[in-house]
Amino acid sequence: MFSRYGTLKNAMCGLGLVALLLLPFIIPTFWLRIFTGVSLWVGLALSWNMIGGYMGYISFGHGAFFGVGAYATALVMAHTPIPFGIAILISGTLTYLFARMVGYLTFRLNGTYFAIGTWAFAEMMRQVVLLLPFTGGSYGMRLPPVVNEGFFYYVMLALAVAVLIFSYFIFEKSSFGLKVKSVREEETAAQTLGIDVEKVKNQVFALSGLFPGVIGGAYAYWITYIHPDSVLGPLIADQMVVMVLLGGIGTVFGPVIGASLMYIGNRIIWVTWGDSSSYLVILGLAICFIIRFLPEGLIKLPIRESLRRIGVGARQAIPNEEVR
């Protein structure tokens, strides 16, 4: 922590945060929207990483929590005079309870069965929203438009930073994080050590559903128009998974890197070709290549060693210093 490397890292984090806070005054609205999107996806990727990375349970259904949050916020704001700030808290609470229930049911399964179960559940939610009388079916819902890009940028940034800090302290620095990791490594062994495995699994699942719910609510208010394919489509959950894999699964900063690169890449393709299907080609190829050649993600590229070699944070490796 107090080594040269650590100090450098802290200083860079501080500088980065200041730069991010000043961003709305520097860059044009177009780019600000892209950075809002980056924050959104960083938050989502980090949320998925809680269950997929730290817990080791693959969920293909996390898009459902994003969508439920978005619809809950839209419904609350359409039918009541409740302001946005409280509406996303309500939708966050609802999503948390909802995730609690889904987790309770789905944790009867494990491995591939769990992945398929969450996927089936998410698809079910999309069908439910398509058919419910008050969600507008496939036409979706509109919210009162608010044109204030700076506001949404700060909201998304705050959410992303909140998830980041939460991930870091809960999963990397607390005894709860150790419990979660021990369950991931070997459930039976964790159980014999007196860890309530079921409880831990349910808590992590609900937490990893809570944040997408809140972020979904903010998304709905930002975009002002949601429909089942945009907030409950399979692409939401899929991108969360891919972003985490790209950056590095089960790490704090991997999902941040993965989400930022993928979202910016997506926007560059969108600006260049303006056509969404070529994005799918590149996304698909990227997934295959990452998994085949870089299964640990970009964060495990030997950048740190290269930095040490040129003298930044030069330090002898101390055994057990880095807890992986």
């Binding site: 799918l280 996304l283 698909g284 085949r292």
Partner: peptide
């Protein structure tokens, strides 16, 4: 699983 998912995205996109 994710690899085959990538394949499917690629095929569909292509």
């Amino acid at each position: 699983l994710a690899f085959t998912f990538g394949l499917s995205t690629f095929f569909r996109g292509a």
